[in-house]
Amino acid sequence: MITRRGFLRLIGGSFLSMVSLGAYAVGVEPMLSTHVKRYFLTPPHWPAGLKLRVVALADVHACRPWMTPERIASLAAEANALQPDLIVLLGDYVAGMRLVTDQVPASEWASALSGLKAPLGVKAILGNHDWWHDPVAQRAGAGPTVARKALEGAGITVLENDAFRLEKDGHGFWLAGLADQLALLPGQGRAEAGGLDDLDGTLAKVSDNAPIILLAHEPDIFPKVPWRVSLTLSGHTHGGQVRLFGYSPVVPSAYGNRFAYGHVVENDRNLIVSGGLGFSIMPVRFGMRPEILQIDLG
């Protein structure tokens, strides 16, 4: 039988363990050196002679003290060091929570991202927070958002329901980018939240049979993505921010853990969901280090 002293020691030890885990999740893991998550795959109808390295950064959520312009610039240098052919940004550059010491203006985080360099360029899409925290765009129900203008001012191409043809080693491929699926909040005459994404219209801009890489901030679009698309890249979920044994208790997706994180293959269609770099709602990461994606195709 456990004694009163033993019981108090157990309670005290459990409390200290919880405090230590909480301190690690808030103060340590979010600030650890970035993990490079590598994927190697040949998706459907990918040309045999096309070897392509794509590096992806998602969910920067610029803010102080967690994701300063200096840290973003260092992430850009890490991405460049991977020697990518193409760099893609998967949205949510704007802070997604109030637990910050200061906001980072768009001009500053965009300037830090301007250090990204790749032979085939740097292409971006926007995320829900890039829309939600732009009151002018919310009132208008349309862009361009402050985030889009900042990225374009930094020399980064932004794709919103658009497709861009690229070529490497004599092989063409398409990079398509969706507008955000959760862009508009209720209000301003809108009873419900609404998206601005147009999957069919975006893919209609593809004018030949070359393979397609689709950028979609939220992975929830994936069940609608046709087999014609070789690979879909998404962010948004942050891998749940807390992930243990392949499971995340809370995932901002209608599909829960189905599209929470990692490489998903369904009906010979490929989706990769990044765990992202920053966080929203709470500054907590546990079992889900900040990460940059390196994807080698072919």
Rank of each mutant, 00 (worst) to 15 (best):
G143M: 03
A137L: 06
A110I: 07
R98Y: 11
P135Q: 10
A140K: 12
D134F: 04
K117I: 07
W131G: 07
V100G: 01
S111P: 00
I125D: 02
A142I: 05
A106P: 01
S114L: 08
K117C: 02
T145K: 06
D134L: 05
T145P: 01
D102Y: 00
K123P: 00
G121E: 01
A150K: 06
A118G: 11
P144Q: 08
A110H: 03
V136Q: 14
Q138G: 10
S111E: 13
D134A: 09
A137W: 04
H129C: 11
K123C: 10
P105E: 15
Q138V: 11
W109Q: 00
G121K: 03
A110P: 03
Q103V: 12
P144M: 07
S114Q: 12
N128Y: 00
L120R: 10
I125W: 02
R148H: 04
L116G: 02
P105W: 09
L99T: 13
V146E: 15
H133M: 13
V136R: 12
P105K: 10
G121P: 00
T101N: 12
V136F: 05
K117S: 15
D130G: 01
A150V: 05
N128V: 07
L116E: 01
G141Y: 09
L113D: 02
L126R: 06
L126E: 12
G115M: 02
V104M: 13
L113C: 08
Q138T: 11
L120K: 03
G127Y: 03
D130L: 10
S111V: 02
D130A: 13
K117P: 01
A137K: 03
G141H: 09
D130Y: 08
G127N: 07
S114W: 01
D134Q: 09
P135N: 06
A118F: 11
D102C: 02
V100R: 15
S111Q: 14
D130R: 09
G121W: 04
A150N: 04
S107P: 01
Q103N: 09
M97Y: 11
A118Y: 08
